[in-house]
Nucleic acid binder design. Sequence first.
DNA 1: CGTCTCTGTCAACGGCTGTTGACTAGCAGG
DNA 2: CCTGCTAGTCAACAGCCGTTGACAGAGACG
Lengths: 220, 220
Amino acid sequence: MTGSKPSKSTLPAKVRIIEAAAARFSRYSYEETGLRDIAADAKVDVAYVHRCFGSKERLFAQALAAVSSQEQMVSSSRDFMAQAFTEEFFRKRRRGDGDAHPLSIFIRSLTSAEARRVLRKSLAEDYVRPLSERLEDSTSLRAALILAFLAGVGIFRDALEVDAFQEPRGGRFERLFHDIITRIIEMDVAPPKGRELVGSRISGVQKRRRPRRRADLDSE
Amino acid sequence: MTGSKPSKSTLPAKVRIIEAAAARFSRYSYEETGLRDIAADAKVDVAYVHRCFGSKERLFAQALAAVSSQEQMVSSSRDFMAQAFTEEFFRKRRRGDGDAHPLSIFIRSLTSAEARRVLRKSLAEDYVRPLSERLEDSTSLRAALILAFLAGVGIFRDALEVDAFQEPRGGRFERLFHDIITRIIEMDVAPPKGRELVGSRISGVQKRRRPRRRADLDSE
DNA sequence: CGTCTCTGTCAACGGCTGTTGACTAGCAGG
DNA sequence: CCTGCTAGTCAACAGCCGTTGACAGAGACG
């Protein structure tokens, strides 16, 4: 293989920009991260960053995609899925330099309306759908629940730095975490017989009410 | 004593500002919300908003505190706690005039470093601690897990608008949600004494191969 | 030679932000 | 009269932001 990994200085500028962006976005929020910061990290001019990707939002999308692509969704069998999720979640506790992780990017930037558009799409296509297929669930309910739990605990641990979640590996925290994931995976999705609903729930497409946004520009 | 609630137009300016801020912050993020927006809602000048509270961060803190205070932590008995959480989470319209809700404020603004300082403190003191005491848990682990799950699902439903969570009330989503909360509440926090039930847990150090990692990424 | 394209830089624009100092209206008290 | 206080306004400042247009070096083609 010729291109194992040459060196950072010889990488083409676009690649350096994407790597720098991914690193920034996984440590700081979308709004905290300026194009000038990314440009400085990649050792190019601000204008070139913008010129290469068209807009900050598109750069964010490409950085997220780059990190997501090399992070394949849980590929173990259903029985070991909870184990795999747990190990993945507790592995990255100490972050070195190659710390760009999709979960971190999600956690940091789900605030901005711009970033949220990107995250929403990636979440549905790259995470909820594949996990849902693997769970053999007709709806995406359990997949979304697992990922929501993952995100919530990640936010509490890494962003809000809740004390109870600062345990070292292998403690009760990790065990409870594993138990809950297991519980969700093994959950029964079918409604209990004789109770509630007659079946009118799933049929029609309900309209989601969309909160009034300040700037709602169409993308692509 | 302030007593009852007279009318919006007769309320003192400070109160109007706090209410306007709470409403804004529960719909938009900390950074999206400008002091000028809040001032316009409260029908005062921007400078006065700043003068009253000293800084945007302090106004945010007071708005959050005002909303949190009138939202007493689940006071039902432990057996009905999951039920109470679920009903609270799935209740549609909260109040007549404004739907300012601490969970919404959390969800919208956990990005900014400034807002996070405030949120972190309020989360620990106003939510994790009281819930933990009610659960009679020596550590805050289960309380934090419940709240993290709540936040994660809330983010997915309200901020990212994940499709699977847009069900109407009383559906499978609500039932699974309730089950998971129940599970966390009834969880055993003590470390496992003897051997665990079956081999699929984390009891021992597992020697399983890593699931095909991206190897040569070190190089630095 | 000229010209085209790609990579990259430079300086600036317009807009928005939190914040600040100066200032006015009203009211109390001496 | 003057003083002092509080509530509230006004205009502006300084800074950061994404974005843009003009331009320069380097190859490539002919």
